[in-house]
Simulated scan of single mutants.
Amino acid sequence: MEIITGAGAWSPPAAGDWTEHLRTPDLSVGTYCIPAGGVDGQSPHTEDEIYVVTAGRAKIVTPDATADVGPGTVVFVPAGEPHRFTDVTEDLALLVVFGPAYGSRAR
Rank of each mutant, 00 (worst) to 15 (best):
I3L: 14
A7H: 02
A9T: 15
W10P: 02
S11W: 12
S11T: 15
P13R: 08
A15I: 12
D17T: 14
H21A: 05
T24V: 11
D26Y: 13
P35G: 07
G37R: 11
D40Y: 02
D40T: 00
D40I: 02
G41W: 02
S43R: 14
S43F: 11
T46S: 15
D48Q: 12
I50H: 06
I50R: 06
I50W: 13
V53Y: 00
T54V: 02
T54H: 02
A55V: 01
G56R: 01
G56Y: 01
A58E: 00
A58R: 00
A58D: 00
I60R: 12
T62Y: 05
P63K: 07
A65R: 11
T66A: 14
A67K: 10
V69K: 00
V69L: 01
V69P: 03
P71R: 06
V74K: 08
V75H: 11
F76Q: 08
V77E: 00
A79F: 09
A79W: 08
G80P: 03
P82W: 09
H83K: 07
H83N: 08
T89P: 05
D91Y: 08
D91T: 07
L92S: 00
L94E: 04
V96P: 03
G99Y: 03
A101R: 13
G103W: 03
S104W: 03
R107S: 14
